[in-house]
């Protein structure tokens, strides 16, 4: 695994590159460890408060530790009418956590999200950004079993 310092520094010369640097860190670590903020602040010449403000503005970025598999469940209107609520409940029941939490073994994080742009086959979830469409509560165990 590359160090946070190395990842962030690679974007040093990119104007406005702080968000790109955050994406790159998150790609390796699944979230932005605290060090990311300090390193990004000094690299891009902004205060730590500003660097933190940027990191926390975007729902895709997380400053909280997350699981190995991040399951995001779309609850926008087209998914909502297609049964998103029952699907969310099924994931919560299967993992024993509620949306926003991470399982004790650090394997899964459940998050709610708005439309992920796959509304031709609702309801939709993504696992580490890969979309799974036309989901139903019955499919939850099989989908979780894919995460090894």
């Amino acid at each position: 695994m590359s160090t946070i310092q190395d990842i962030v520094l690679a974007f040093r010369d990119k104007p406005g590159g702080i968000i790109e640097a955050y994406h790159a860190v998150q790609k390796e670590y699944n979230y932005l460890p605290e060090e990311t903020i300090t390193v990004a602040a000094s690299t891009f010449g902004v205060s730590e408060a500003q660097a933190y403000g940027v990191a926390t503005f975007y729902s895709y970025l997380s400053v909280e530790k997350r699981g190995k598999y991040i399951i995001r469940m779309c609850e926008s209107a087209p998914c909502h009418v297609a049964g998103a609520e029952a699907l969310i409940k099924a994931f919560e029941a299967a993992l024993g956590i509620v949306a926003g939490e991470t399982t004790a073994d650090g394997k899964f994080t459940l998050e709610l999200t708005e439309c992920v742009g796959q509304c031709q086959a609702t309801p939709v979830i993504t696992i580490n950004n890969v979309p799974y469409v036309n989901m139903s509560p019955e499919q939850v165990p099989a989908v979780l079993a894919l995460c090894q």
Partner: peptide, 8 residues
């Protein structure tokens, strides 16, 4: 290409 962060 720049990537957004999930903010409508």
């Amino acid at each position: 290409v720049r990537m957004g962060g999930g903010a409508y």
